[in-house]
Amino acid sequence: MNENLVSIPRVPSVLARPLGLAPLAPLSLSLNAFARAVARNHPGLFRRLGDHAHSTFVLDPTDLPFAILLEPRGGAPKVSVGRGAVRGDARIAGPLAAFLGLVHGAFDGDALFFSRDLVIEGDTAAALALRNAIDDAELDFADEAARLSGPFAAPLRRLIALTERRMGICLSRPPEEAAW
């Protein structure tokens, strides 16, 4: 039986290719600020990392021309973006939509791993701790971005919703209404 496989959208190459030429410093700075804001709002995420709160993680979106180095640093995270060989204790590779779906609880990490949509290399225990800590944090990137956007929060939310609809990616937490 192999039915019901999750379909993971890919970033179209027409969008991804220009990023191969774009300067990465502004993206690093933005992601770094975003990670710091997430850390302030979700300190439990770093407690749950336990022994791996100082491990380093390479998040490699395979449909984008760069990789992200995440250093949790015990709750004072640093994020940087690089091209070529980015090194860390654990490397997790897969489509950007898979990462975003995991963060927002739309996809199951093990299922993506079994199906080879996600690939793990290096320190498996660290990767597992990160997966579990993020899953428990119930992050919502749309909420976090809106908090940082001040008066632009409302138009930003509309833009995020439009992007989700057009690209089929998950940028916010799906509603979790009680079923019973």
């Binding site: 192999n2 496989l5 299922a111 199906s115």
Partner: peptide, 11 residues
């Protein structure tokens, strides 16, 4: 509809 969640993707 749960096969994709299973180890080995089979039940």
């Amino acid at each position: 509809m749960l096969a994709s969640l299973s180890e080995g993707q089979a039940t």
